[in-house]
Design a protein around this nucleic acid. Structure first.
Lengths: 343, 343
DNA sequence: ATTTTCTACGAAAACGTTTCAGTAAATAAA
DNA sequence: TTTATTTACTGAAACGTTTTCGTAGAAAAT
């Protein structure tokens, strides 16, 4: 009934009201040249008046651009990712892009599904921090094939795969943390790692081993754990570590959640930190600063990472470089050791 | 050059390959009845084979449905919101909806802008947790006018405004927290509130006053603060509270961040918690559980809130009820006092 | 046998933009 | 003056779906 009454939006309605063709209106809106100044102002006035907003579906269908970026991330609640996402979102917004944020929940299956959905939405690009267990990357092929650029960050493909790669210097972070412990006189250092499928944990483990080797300290296999880094698993590992003496002198956790749980466990069984046990975490989660003793950790400067992601993304979108890698060599972001009371 | 070579996706291509009309393919994909079983399987096979994915822009243009929901939230890094968002996202995903998450950063200006962008994207609905300072809601009118339903949650309009409203029982939460402190024998209770423009802080303040009045304890104006609830402001408030005696016996913070900062301050100046000062926070932020002493707080059950939001949203989307409120009376979610070491 | 209902499909219009090709008028160059 | 160029615009096709309407044949009802 009121279909025609209040449907006074749309380029055609503006055209009609102004006795112009839709084409002209479109040109004004898209800032094309070759449109008379008087016409431009007239159109803009009308646009303002009826509160016109471009229908992105129609224009997207025509131009094959959605001005929307997809993002797949394991969990938005992880501190580093939350920071990065916020930076990306603000950065993209100021350039007229929307962001569809999806959580894979560390499920490869979900990651696949989300990739398909994002493709169906015809996003202009996809930003991905992979699952803990993503070792096969073929589900991203559909994006590449359709010239949708992909930027991997943080947890990135371990085998060569087209797409831009931006990652923290995980090797160096772990190296710094371990060296720090060694310099404090620790020899029996336990290492709690994430699954060694995931790029960041591979690199961190390598960094740990490098530091140990450099000081000629053997790595005790019984003091190294590979597991999903949550509080429960951390407690289990601690249980094993403190089942019999000699106890470890230090714990390097590849994750602040794990470090926090380790600290909690130590407190419970009456081990003094840092006197009897030193703890180093990873990521500079805000929680690591407020517990007592506060936990030494590695800062990844997530805001910086976010900025670089936006920068690279805009570059790619501008150049129209499709899925094919522009620069195959990954961008590696610096990290820093944050010394606190736990060491 | 290869435009026609690899562009073998699309309903028309399937139709061509199978000697059918696009209409039939569409019917198969949309599970319309009146399509022969043999045809259906043939089509589905081809869909599978070429990896067809519906172009949501084309279908959206036609049907005026995007299967995308917009979400505006102050900050995704806030614990309660992160939880709620995750629940919403998972819930919607299993029903075939995408979620565009936007952060207003507690800026009204940004909230306006994001609303416009979401309208331009023609999302099927919008979920909003308002800014701290949103007192005028007219920027949401454009959604209502265009029959895009809006669900407000947590921070909701304080004046009557169309749209579904889902909120925590902030009055009760504050009442519980305050009563708890009073029962522990506290009389000089400081209250650190957020700005009284925002629905949740109005309700919490009312709850606080109610509990105080019920026990005939006067509210000392010098011990009540209205401010943006971040760590810096919390420390300033603490500074004033402990500038001269008599010191407060308890602090009720309308926020766990504030409670955490208050605890930190107390520790620094050597005030013993809970012996000399009791602290209650709000939201059950994970951080409140890991500090020592752990902080008593109010749990809002964010997962439950998320579930209800999804439930209501799906109801609205199914019924096709536009922007006009279906049920003008807000849904109020229960809260619970979590007793910890700080009281 | 005739009429009615149902099934399975096709033709074509529509959704709101963008853009190509075209044109008439105005200006510049010859 | 004629011809070429530029400017300011229009008409119409296109993007990939969905959906209405129509139709031919099959099945059911009369």
């Amino acid at each position: 009934m009121k279909k025609k009454l209040d449907k006074k939006n749309g380029i055609q309605d503006i055209a009609e009201a102004l006795q112009l063709s839709p084409a002209t209106i479109s040109r004004v809106l898209n800032k094309h040249p070759h449109v008379h100044e008087a016409t431009r102002t007239k159109v803009m006035a009308m646009v303002e008046q009826i509160g016109y907003r471009r229908n992105v579906m129609a224009s997207g269908l025509r131009t094959n651009k959605t001005h929307t970026i997809g993002l797949i991330v394991p969990r938005i609640s992880m501190f580093v990712h939350a920071e990065i996402i916020t930076t990306i979102q603000n950065g993209l917004h100021s350039h007229g892009y929307n962001l569809i944020i999806c959580q894979s929940n560390d499920s490869v299956e979900m990651e696949k599904e989300l990739t398909e959905t994002l493709y169906a939405s015809r996003v202009d690009a996809v930003i991905v921090a992979c699952t803990l267990y993503t070792s096969d990357f073929s589900h991203f092929d559909i994006l590449m094939k359709n010239d949708i650029p992909v930027i991997f960050y943080d947890r990135v493909p371990v085998k060569p795969y087209p797409g831009c790669i931006i990652k923290g210097d995980d090797f160096r972070g772990a190296y710094l943390g371990t060296s720090h412990l060694i310099e404090l006189g620790c020899k029996r250092i336990a290492y709690i790692s994430g699954p060694l499928v995931c790029s960041i944990y591979i690199d961190r483990y390598t960094g740990f081993k490098k530091a140990m080797a450099q000081h000629e300290i053997p790595v005790d296999k019984d003091m190294v754990f590979y597991q999903e880094l949550n509080a429960d698993n951390a407690r289990k590992a601690m249980h094993m570590l403190f089942a019999k003496k000699p106890y470890p002198e230090a714990i390097f956790a590849a994750n602040d959640v794990t470090a926090l749980a380790a600290l909690g466990f130590a407190k419970e069984i009456g081990i003094q930190v840092p006197k009897e046990l030193k703890i180093v975490g990873y990521s500079n989660d805000p929680r690591s600063a407020i517990v007592s003793p506060s936990i030494t950790t590695i800062d990844q400067f997530p805001t910086q990472i976010g900025k670089i992601i936006v920068q690279e993304l805009l570059k790619i979108l501008k150049n129209g470089t499709g899925g094919i890698a522009i620069d195959p060599s990954p961008i590696i972001m610096p990290v820093e050791l944050i010394r606190r009371m736990s060491t």
